[in-house]
Design a protein around this nucleic acid. Structure first.
Length: 215
DNA sequence: ACATCGATCTACT
DNA sequence: GTAGATCGATGTA
């Protein structure tokens, strides 16, 4: 039932140049992060995150997202600016990384106008390159279990609060695109929240069902 | 100061 | 399906 990796030809052992030279990966033609979080959450499906880690490249395709708005009781920004959510109010296109449940980090992409406090939570990636390293970081090797959850992504790609506020147009964590078509997009309610639980602001491509945190 | 609980994951029944 | 891990951000006193 496993799918073949969907597009992209990144080498797990490749140098930086190979990301651009041996694949169609490039910075997104449009600045996806300038969209409102609701639109960005859909537009980001199919984009690729590339992590430069000690001379190796890890890459994964975004296949599950959630939108968090400012006027949204589920959002960290709902009660205004704090030390933790500072990056959410910073420039779009930067990372917002936070620590939760005493165990896990979660990666967001800040969207919308600077100062608004919107972001898109990246909930699942389809692994594309560096699966061996991801397996080592995760302590398990099944490809579907490497990046299928927000905490798993951060563990499998070595993302922690040192990357909070990092601009995603440069190493060691970049957001790229290759024109992959997500096709039909499923919208469901968001996972693990109390307030605003009825809002259908979680998105994933129907074809990526095998790679998401939950179908 | 102290209590609560979370945008989760794993292991176990 | 349910519980336990584990800790820092946040709210209340």
């Amino acid at each position: 039932m496993r799918q073949a990796p969907s597009g992209g030809e990144i080498s797990g052992t490749g140098r930086d140049a190979e990301v651009f030279g041996c694949s169609r990966l490039r910075p997104p033609a449009e600045d996806l992060w300038r969209l409102d979080a609701l639109e960005a959450a859909r537009a980001l499906l199919g984009a690729v995150l590339v992590r430069d880690l000690e001379g190796r490249l890890l890459a994964g395709r975004i296949v599950e997202t959630e939108a968090y708005l400012q006027d949204d009781p589920a959002s960290h920004s709902y009660r205004g600016r704090t030390a933790r959510n500072e990056a959410m109010f910073g420039p779009p296109g930067h990372a917002y990384v936070y620590f939760t449940y005493g165990n896990h980090f979660c990666l967001n992409i800040v969207t919308g106008p600077e100062g608004r406090g919107e972001a898109v939570l990246v909930r699942a990636l389809e692994p594309l390159a560096g699966l061996d390293i991801m397996g080592r970081l995760r302590g398990r090797d099944a490809p579907r279990d490497l990046l299928s959850g927000p905490g798993k992504i951060c563990q499998g790609m070595a993302i922690d609060r040192r990357l909070d506020g990092h601009p995603l147009d440069r190493p060691p964590l970049r957001l790229l695109a290759d024109g992959w078509d997500p096709g039909e997009i499923i919208a469901t309610t968001r996972v693990g929240i109390r307030h605003g639980a009825d809002r259908p602001w979680r998105f994933y491509p129907a074809r990526s069902r095998d790679w998401v945190s939950r179908p």
